[in-house]
Amino acid sequence: MRASMFPHRLILASLAFLLSGCDKAPEDRLLGYVDGDYVYMALPESGRLTGIAVKRGDRVDAGAALFDLETTAFQARLDRAKADLAEAERNLADLRTGERPEELAIVEAQLESARASLMLSEPRVKRRRELVKDNVVGIEDLDAAEASILEDRGRIAEYTARLAAAKLSSRDERIAAQEAAVSAFRAAVAEAQWSLDERRAYAPAAGTVEDVYFRLGEEVPAAQAVLQLLPPRNVKLKIYVPEQQLSSYRVGETLAVSCDGCPPGLRAKIDFIAAEAEYTPPVIYSDTSRAKLVFLIEARPEPGAQDAQPSGFQWHPGQPVEARPLEARPIKVQSGEAQKEPATGS
């Protein structure tokens, strides 16, 4: 009976060996997943969220409006800065115009009139003094004549000062100071305009809205991300290489990539290899990936590879992937086993 059972046991063992061989992955297969360098869209100042033009999962073009914060105070600040600038520019224009020749002629004529009046007033006072001595006129007439002299002299001093002020060289300094004030107000307008413009966020590149963190009416803190954007060029593959295979890979090398439901012919180029090992992440640990220490490799999908797919293929963060070198190479295995030549990746 024992002899008759031996062939059956041998057949069962052979089947088990064949089945296990069918499930065994190629030795050069690398496991990983899709990840991305996300763009967290935020604004520099806080405010209430008054508008949002996208939702989670939307694809947006570069320059598309994403969301808005309240602008009332910022619009008022801009209007005030523009009013200050307009007043400063009016003052500068007035200084540059200065006294017109006609206005100077009027002042000069007034000065000559005052001088002429003074020339008449002085002899009149002398005559009044003689007449007072002879009791021909009263002392009041003499006082009025002397007051007229003082008035003429005051007018002469006023008009002389006005002419001197109009011709002073210091006007150039006042103009320079006012020009500096105008420049400062223009800078204030530019700053206020920038602050107002920064109340709305625009997509820096085409991409997919991966998440939205705030809702309409909520208060958004300064520099706090409102939504998460992933441009296609920021997609990357995180692939883990067993320690004994690390020396077989180089930055710039192209890998063949495959995943469930993905079209054939996908490629990715290695642009980073970690310098330190880490334990195999649980997200990729399986019966066919038992290496305790692995090194992270990041690879970028080749430009145009996914765009060329007629089905509109798109990478999805978290999606498991497999990668293989395009060229066959010997794979180092555990001691006691022979080296094997893997199949060329497709």
Rank of each mutant, 00 (worst) to 15 (best):
R77V: 06
T50C: 03
S286G: 08
E298T: 11
E89A: 12
P263A: 02
I273R: 10
A203C: 03
V283T: 10
S195A: 11
L296P: 04
A76D: 10
L266I: 04
D134Y: 09
D68C: 07
A177T: 08
A343P: 06
K332I: 11
E89V: 06
A93G: 06
A16P: 00
R100Q: 13
G336Y: 06
G336E: 10
I11K: 08
R200S: 14
Y33G: 01
S46A: 15
A42Q: 06
G138E: 11
L12P: 02
I331M: 14
G304Q: 05
F74Y: 12
T208P: 05
L78Q: 15
Q314L: 12
V226E: 05
C262P: 00
G21Q: 10
R199H: 10
D35A: 15
V54Q: 07
E253P: 07
V107K: 09
E173I: 15
I52P: 04
R29M: 10
G252F: 09
V60P: 04
S4F: 12
T72S: 04
Y249P: 00
A93L: 07
E243G: 03
S14G: 14
I273D: 06
A145T: 11
A116T: 14
S20R: 12
W315Q: 03
P232S: 09
A291C: 02
S183R: 15
T344D: 09
L18P: 01
V54H: 05
L216A: 02
K24Y: 02
G207I: 06
A83F: 09
Y202K: 13
L142I: 10
K133L: 09
P330I: 07
V182A: 13
D94V: 13
A305F: 04
F313P: 03
D287E: 13
L131H: 07
L85H: 08
A109N: 10
V241R: 03
A88C: 04
A177N: 13
D79F: 02
K55S: 14
S46D: 15
R215H: 14
R199S: 06
D28M: 08
P303N: 00
A166P: 07
R267S: 11
L216Q: 06
G304P: 01
P204F: 05
Y38A: 15
A176M: 10
G318D: 03
M119D: 13
A328H: 02
L78W: 01
A275P: 00
L31E: 12
R153W: 07
V39K: 05
A201H: 00
K269D: 03
E243H: 07
A165G: 02
E99L: 14
A3T: 11
D28F: 02
A25W: 12
L66W: 04
Q193N: 04
L85S: 04
V107Y: 00
A323F: 05
D23K: 11
R199C: 03
P342R: 08
M41V: 14
L246E: 07
P7I: 01
G312A: 07
E27P: 09
L43G: 06
K340D: 09
T344L: 13
V235K: 01
E302K: 10
T208L: 15
N135R: 15
T280C: 02
E322G: 08
P303I: 04
A157T: 13
K269C: 02
L168C: 11
R77A: 15
A181T: 15
V241C: 04
V136D: 09
E70Q: 12
A65T: 11
K82G: 05
L196R: 05
G63L: 05
C262N: 03
V321S: 00
T71V: 12
R124D: 13
L118V: 00
L296T: 11
A181Q: 15
L85N: 01
P320I: 03
